[in-house]
Design a protein around this nucleic acid. Structure first.
Lengths: 202, 202
DNA sequence: AACTGCATCAAGAAATAGTATTGATGTAGT
DNA sequence: ACTACATCAATACTATTTCTTGATGCAGTT
């Protein structure tokens, strides 16, 4: 398999993703192939480090990334997981071109397709359809974020955990409990007890 | 401890390093503090990836980095380790602004102080003393490289290993044998046998 | 032809690092 | 006092990384 085949195989999920939102013509597909670059992040590797400007918009082909904030006490709080077919990037830092307060790193070896800020602007110019595609995509992200926030302010840890199981069933046995706990905003110990309780009740 | 104290603590070893070569006045110290940025590389993280242009000159505060070449067969050959108070960067790529054929990555979580190409030029302009400091520093690197080359073409693996033990005693029990073997240019298995032999002879 | 200095491959053992569980104890808010 | 969590410490478990060993091979001396 030569290099082009390889890139093509990896880019297929992204083309599918776009096409499901809005069908692309050949030229648009070609732009995507040209402007998105495949990149491998190895487990624990940063895709974005606090203080740097986020310059890439990432689509996960396989693996899993997380975006998180480290607070003054050194605790990490996970804002988002991104596994297959999800987008991740610090949108604020990306668009306003200012240093990120958040980190993104890899929980598994992760292949992404990424487009740089510059190339994304070029993409919008050359194929205005992507304005709409990215609007929709960001709306989706926004909605799921809003949902999480709402849940956070209105539910107990147990409820949040159950909802996590529903919404992220593919991740619940794939990620370490530490990460899930940090996503739910509880300690790993408490999550362990919650899981125990669940097991007993079933 | 606030953020400034933190940066100051980290930058001290670098100021010491320079001062031992040539004393710096307050203004020069200030430039160093301003132009060198602390940065953490986590174990396995790349500081420079083949194909990218090396844009940073790195001083290791703690931890250990390695610079290596991956050959056509996929074997890696380590050119240099850099632990505390050592410099590392692909000087060729850095100065000629062309893609690196070498990789740099972290063998341990590593804190570096790094200066970008742009800022280093600014430093030379604003404080010409650094021309001399960096000349000396690069000379030191050059000499140790030459020594290694000479040894490589003139010694058996066992001799090279013994010399490694002398010159890098602080690393010999800190790095995995795989890495040391790759530095010596032998297989880990053969290094294992050499070590065995040593142990018996003493 | 035998010997030396290495390599390669495969399998298993040993060491280390990462993750999960549990108990004891504490605290803020109802 | 009770609920919903946190913190700390110890232990257990699992996975990953690293090391060792044996078998085999080969190229370049002696």
């Amino acid at each position: 398999m030569d290099k082009n085949d390889l890139i093509f195989t990896q880019i297929q999920p992204l083309l599918n993703y776009f096409t499901e939102l809005i069908p692309l013509n050949a030229e648009e597909q070609h732009l995507v192939i040209e402007l998105f670059k495949p990149r491998l992040y190895r487990k624990r590797q940063y895709a974005l480090q606090e203080g740097d400007i986020c310059n890439q918009f990432n689509f996960v082909v396989r693996g899993c990334l997380r975006m998180y904030k480290v607070d003054d006490k050194g605790n990490t709080h996970i804002l988002q997981f991104a596994s297959e077919n999800w987008w991740i990037s610090n949108i604020g830092s990306f668009h306003e071109r200012k240093p990120s307060g958040l980190n993104i790193d890899a929980l598994e070896d992760t292949m992404v397709l990424q487009i740089s800020h510059e190339n994304l602007l070029a993409l919008y110019t050359q194929a205005p359809k992507f304005d709409r595609i990215f609007r929709v995509l960001i709306e989706n992200n926004f909605v799921s974020l809003q949902k999480r926030l709402l849940q956070n302010i209105s539910s107990t840890a147990e409820e949040r955990y159950l909802s996590f199981l529903e919404n992220y069933s593919h991740l619940s046995n794939r990620l370490p409990q530490t990460q899930i706990a940090s996503f739910l905003g509880i300690t790993p110990e408490f999550l362990s007890r919650l899981r125990n309780k669940q097991a007993k009740n079933s």
